[in-house]
Write a protein that binds this DNA or RNA. Structure first.
Ligand SMILES: [Mn+2]
Ligand SMILES: [Mn+2]
Ligand SMILES: [Mn+2]
Ligand SMILES: [Mn+2]
Lengths: 219, 219
DNA sequence: GTTTTCATTTTGAGTGTTCAAAATATAGGG
DNA sequence: CCCTATATTTTGAACACTCAAAATGAAAAC
């Protein structure tokens, strides 16, 4: 049975792989996102290779093998179903569920997970708008782009919020920047690194490019 | 933050302390119930002492200090609330919840636990009939005796089932030996190590002393 | 009061994960 | 083509937990 350390590594490597759309993940990104020193990531990569989860190519990075990809997707499923449970059933705030799910994902069994899935009505997205992989390990690919790249006058729908940082999530909710909400880009000032937007039925406000980058939308 | 190993040790030591009504717990009982070698239990005891959870007296055993007792009670609360959730909300069978709770108890945060407690309506007993300690660390003392010691003709109410073994729990449920059920001792054959009983409204059947010992009742 | 038995402790070692700091490789800029 | 900045790897050590097997202590049996 893989340890929770192994599960965290594989889930994170999977996320980076998907985000970059690039099979090979350099060690630096891994050590940074898991908050371990680079040497630790390297030595873990060798262990993970020995156990058959991935391929490790020195000075290039790692690439998931089918087993590693499958386990990564499974942990992602657990994580996102648990987040959904914490918000939908227990009423926690979406800014505090990530850390909770980060622990619970390693303790919940397959059996309990499936019961939870039934109980929740087999949701397809977590509270942040991220797709929940199926039991079979299929996750729908989203072809959404970031709000930061949207032109003036465009109307878009929020797909997901791509940041787990508490304060950003609190800000987003306070501005009604939630998955499913419709927003219009009123103006865009390249030099100011900011744009003015309006969430449907709300007051317009401006948002910096840095923040807008974390909001994924579909046209 | 105490590791899940520490949590398991303290919870188990607390349970043995309560069961034996004896402050000092010999190492043999610890190593057996946690399924580790005696040497492991001894070395762990020294660590736990160094961290202030308990007192270790060589060749006598360990006794919980207030901090250890408090953490033990807290883990017990988590365990039993989770068991209740698994049965009441997710519909798992009471024979399979112990192992699940054994893992989840280390991953659930205080905040999520309290939400769960609310959600469940602040239950006072888990599915096996065991009392759930309060947030403040108070657990109601049960003065129940075992079915095995009950005399012929007596009518009693089942308080709890004191065994986590799957097959025994399945048997118990199949015979309606559940917390709250009223049973009458029809006869008792000392030499046969067995007694005949009837659960209210059901057919009489006989049960060995070994099994009857695991059923706690109140008169 | 010695011997036997049993519980417990000690010893030495191994696993998985981690870090700090030194060593090394590689890619680009000069 | 060399040099330097940056990413990565290596090295050596530590921590928490575990086991097997040998040593020891204390209680029970004789
Ligand atoms: Mn995690
Ligand atoms: Mn999420
Ligand atoms: Mn446990
Ligand atoms: Mn129970």
């Amino acid at each position: 049975m893989p340890s929770s350390t192994v599960e965290n590594y594989l889930k994170q490597i999977l996320l980076i792989t998907l985000e970059r759309e690039e099979k090979v993940v350099p060690m630096g990104l891994i050590s940074e996102s898991l908050d371990v020193t680079p040497g630790t990531a390297t030595s873990m990569a060798k262990n993970l290779e020995k156990e058959g989860w991935l391929c490790y190519e020195p000075r290039r990075g790692v690439s998931l093998k089918p087993a590693g990809r499958k386990l990564g997707l499974n942990i992602l499923r657990r994580h996102r179903l648990l987040e959904t449970f914490l918000v939908e059933t227990l009423g926690l705030d979406w800014s505090e569920i990530h850390e909770e799910a980060e622990e619970l994902e390693h303790a919940i069994s397959e059996k309990v997970l499936e019961r939870l899935d039934d109980f929740l009505g087999r949701p397809r997205h977590d509270p942040h708008g991220h797709p929940i992989p199926t039991k079979g390990g299929v996750m729908q690919r989203k072809k959404s782009r970031s709000l930061v790249g949207c032109k003036e006058g465009l109307s878009v729908v929020i797909e997901s919020i791509d940041d787990q940082e508490r304060n950003f999530l609190k800000f987003a909710r306070s501005r009604h920047l939630l998955p499913g909400k419709k927003i219009k880009i009123l103006s865009r000032e390249e030099e100011a690194d900011a744009m003015e937007i309006r969430v449907e039925g709300k007051m317009p406000f401006s948002i910096g490019f840095e923040a807008a980058r974390k909001i994924l939308v579909s046209v």
